[in-house]
Amino acid sequence: MTDKIRVLVAKPGLDGHDRGAKVIARALRDAGMEVIYTGLRQTPEMIAEAALQEDVDCVGLSILSGAHMALVPRIRQLMDENGLNDVALLIGGIIPDEDIAGLKTMGVSGVFGPGTNTADIVAHIHQLIGTKSG
């Protein structure tokens, strides 16, 4: 059996709008990936722990609250402390253009704002993960 790509889709912070996260989760599922969806209002600790337990290949965060510059480095740090340095971090949601470069230096592999084609996200993950199926 070939390896499946496993993705954690999480919504950190306090905003309660999860339609975007659900659309992404569904698109990745339809691309043959195994998506672990954790629901609303996750703390950075919850996300890093879920990423460890589920042994995912990448974590997709959906943030619409504007708190991305605070949440992302914290999540990246906790993931690294869990030994998940090789697990990619992607972000979607409302992210101002001027923050994108900063997020990338924090170890984010891709930033996907409103209007992104889901196929681009699938392609991005495939490129990151390489040879696995799904």
Binding site: K4, R29, T38, G39, G134
Partner: peptide, 16 residues
């Protein structure tokens, strides 16, 4: 597609 949406953790957030 072979894909899956694994959503059981949503109900288990109190355990994290």
């Amino acid at each position: 597609t072979g894909g899956a949406l694994l959503g059981d953790r949503i109900r288990m957030r109190e355990l994290s």
